[in-house]
Every structure is written in C-alpha cells, then in structure tokens.
C-alpha cells in the first residue's frame, strides 16, 4: 500500500523504514530537511519541485527508496506534492499535535484518505482528536500503560 507519513522524527522515520521493509511504498513530509537523515545515510537531493509553493522540494533515499518532501505537513499544497490524492493510508507524527490534527483533517475531509492515524503528545488532546473523529495514538500513554502492566503483573 501507499503510505504518506508526516513528520520524520523518531516515530515517523522508524515507521517509514518499517513500512518500506514490509514492501510498502512510503512518502515522508517534514519541514526540516535535515530530519530525513534518520531515514537512511544515503540521502540525496533528487529534484527541487513546485517553485510556486517555494519551500517544497523532493529528496530521495536510494537504498531505502523513500521519497521525502520538504514542507509543513499542515500545508495542503505540500501534501498534494507528496501525492496525498493517491495514498491508501496517512500518518501524522510531528512533534506538534495541532499540525497532526490539521494534516489529518486535510487527508480525511478534503482527500477522503481511507486509513488515517495520528500521534498525539499531550494525552489531554486525545479528546480533541476523538471529537474531530480522527483516530489518534498517544505513545506516552501507551508506554506508561505497558509499564504499569509489567509492574503489577
């Protein structure tokens, strides 16, 4: 399947590599091009695209074959450059909960992406995601929960 991952931090890059390892096609969006290093050492700038939108550029990791797009994940134009129209799944895991929420709303309501999931850092905002009918995961809550289970088991 084709997956668009917004946010190339620890979670995003791990997920992207994992998906590629399982034979999926992945595009990653991050506004900071240096963050793509976490996807693989062999990063090369392939082409600079979409001059009208300025900051959008596309890079590529050769070995892992992940296309990378520089730009804000909440910017609809950037998401179009990343090919949001044609993806089967959408993930937003930047370090900004509201960017993740807005990106997911663009995917869900403007592009009707089939599968959408976002990461939420502040557990209190899980409720906001629920109210906007966006599936969300809070890694902190999950981590704490599994620690609790190991402790009391």
């Amino acid at each position: 399947m084709k997956v668009l991952v917004v946010g190339s931090g620890r979670v995003g890059s791990f997920l992207a590599r994992h998906l590629v390892g399982h034979g999926h096609q992945v595009v990653v969006v991050d506004r900071d091009p240096t963050s793509f290093k976490m996807l693989g050492e062999d990063l090369v700038v392939e082409r600079v695209a979409a001059p009208a939108t300025g900051e959008v550029q596309t890079t590529f990791t050769a070995k892992t074959r992940i296309r990378c797009v520089v730009g804000s994940g909440s910017d609809a134009e950037v998401l179009k450059t990343a090919g949001i129209q044609a993806v089967d799944a959408f993930v937003a895991v930047t370090d900004n909960d509201y960017v993740n929420l807005m990106a997911a709303l663009v995917a869900k309501e403007l592009h009707h992406t089939a599968r959408i999931i976002i990461g939420i850092i502040n557990p209190r905002r899980l409720q906001i995601a629920r109210e906007l009918q966006i599936e969300a995961i809070c890694p902190l809550t999950l981590g704490a929960q599994s620690m609790f289970e190991s402790l009391v088991r």
């Binding site: 509201y98 807005m102 906001i128 109210e131």
Partner: peptide, 11 residues
C-alpha cells in the same frame, strides 16, 4: 498558530 485556530473553530 493556524493549526490551533483551525481546531478551535471546528470544535
């Protein structure tokens, strides 16, 4: 922050 303004308005 545009994203915060969007979410506030939608809620």
């Amino acid at each position: 922050q545009d994203e915060v303004n969007l979410v506030a308005c939608l809620l």
